[in-house]
Structures are given as C-alpha cells and as structure tokens.
Amino acid sequence: MADKKATREAYGAALATLGEKYDFVVLDADLAAATKTGVFKKKFPERFFDCGIAEGNMVSVAAGIATTGQKVFATSFAMFAAGRAYEQIRNSIGYPHLNVNIVGTHASITVGEDGATHQCSEDLALMRTIPGMTVISPADATEAYAAVEAALLHDGPCYLRFGRFAVPDLTAEMSDYKFELGKGVTYREGSDVTIVANGYMVHLALEAADILKAEGISAGVINIHTIKPLDTELLTKAAKETGAIVTAEEHSVIGGLGAAVCEALSETCPVPVMRVGVQDTFGRSGKVPELLEMYGLTAANIAENARRAIALKK
C-alpha cells in the first residue's frame, strides 16, 4: 500500500527544498499553516511575505513582483485564490502573461467539515477560461512536488491545485515516471473503456479499473494532471482504441476535466463520455469519506459509469 500524503504537504516541502536551488518569493494570505507555505517561511523568512486576508491585493502584488523578473508564488485556498481573486488573476497576470504561480489549496469536497463556502469545485473551470494560463491538478505528493518545479521553470502564468486530504502516493512507486506539463500519464492500457482522471480521483480510477477487470472489462487509466494545455493527442488515441471514456474529477463536471475532454473529443474522435464529478451542486460539511460517498466520488461510481459508457457505444 502506497504512503498517504496530502498534496498541500508536498507543496510546502517542494517550496522549502526548491528554495535552495531557485530564487523565488512566496506570498500567502494568512493561511500559511494550512497551505503549508509556512514550511518555506520557516526556512526562508526573508523571502516570505504575508499579505494578510486580502487575496485580490496579493494577486496583483504578485503581478507587480513578476514584472521585475522576480519569480513568485501566490497562495491561498482555491476558493479565494481562483474564486475571489479571479478578476485580478485575469487582468493583472493572465492578460500581461506574467510569470506568477497561483496556488489554490483545500480544493473541493475533500476540504470536509468546513463545508460549501470553502469547497471550491469551480477553480479549474475559472482558470481554464484565461488565455495562456497553464492549469495543473496533481494526483499525489510526488506528482505535486514535480508540478511545483515545472511551474517554476515554465515561462507564463500557472495555476496549481492542491488538496487538504491525504491521498496514496502512487507516483512514488512508478520507476519510469516523468512529469511533463501538458502530457498525460498512462497508468494502465485498456481495450473496452478509458478512465481519465486527475487530482484526488486518480487512485480511485485505478480501483475502478480493478473492479471492472474482475468483471472481464478491460479499462485503461490516464492521469491528466495538466488540464490546460490538454493532452488531446493522448485522449484521442484512447478514444480511438477503447471507444468509450469516463472522466473522474473532484471538481464540477461543468468546465473541468470532463468538460475539457468532451470539448476536445467532440472535434477529434466523438465517443460516449460519462462524467463523474460534482454534479452542478454545492458541497456540505461532513467527514471526507462520507462526503465522497454522498457526491459519488468513488471507485464504484466510476465503474458504474464505465459500464454506462460501454453500453452507449454504437
């Protein structure tokens, strides 16, 4: 069984380690303990700046810093980074295409007890609409770490999404793993259906593939950690080879991975696509395992939707 670790933990660790190698500054909006930028703050206090509870200002300050050639991370919960500061991200960072990494932690349902106001299931959709924005939702701690470094080296704005809840670090067990922006990772080849997942749902996609395998259904599993730019080539190949797709995301099915996959495949290889995710609704308070069950973010539901997608094949 793989080690379990939240991707936000990997974010803090990555900042602290990469801070030795690269010159960058980190901003937070009074959530350093939760977002784990506090780990960086402890090690590099002179390169950490708390902006207080003022996310809009933080994002535009980050833009100003970036205009001087200084690399910068601006961090808050996904709700307040991508949500509250959307317009600042669009106009101060996106439009002038500045080198700012915007980081949203505590995304969506796995926030748990804090409930709907803090469970942002719309951040990837919002960020995806901004021209030139790279949007990344890593699956586990090892991938999250790699994503932080890739974003740092990338020329242009990036949005990185991390979770609060611990997730099995499957990437750590892959010997030939290489993180490349915009390139999906094939975990498993299949012939009947392909499960396309990202973030917290990747390990559940693999569990779903096991459930289907026991029934004699061959399911491929792809991790699309970069939702924009989307790996259309890999998705088209999967659609051609298996003829049916299930998407699985801890995000609204409107505007997120499921939507992005449908948009792409409708132009390259239209096949049935079933979308597992938050179904146009708000979250609520509760224990994470209970909420995941309630919102259908489970291996069983992915498997069920795989059967439906297969049934829809002509």
Partner: peptide, 15 residues
C-alpha cells in the same frame, strides 16, 4: 481594472 495597478506598484516596490 481599478485598484489593481496600485497593488502591482506595491509589488514592484517590494521587489
């Protein structure tokens, strides 16, 4: 977009 430039100026000064 009003207000944003003032913050960006702060970022430049901080940098």
């Amino acid at each position: 977009s009003l207000g944003l430039g003032f913050s960006a100026a702060c970022g430049m000064a901080l940098s």
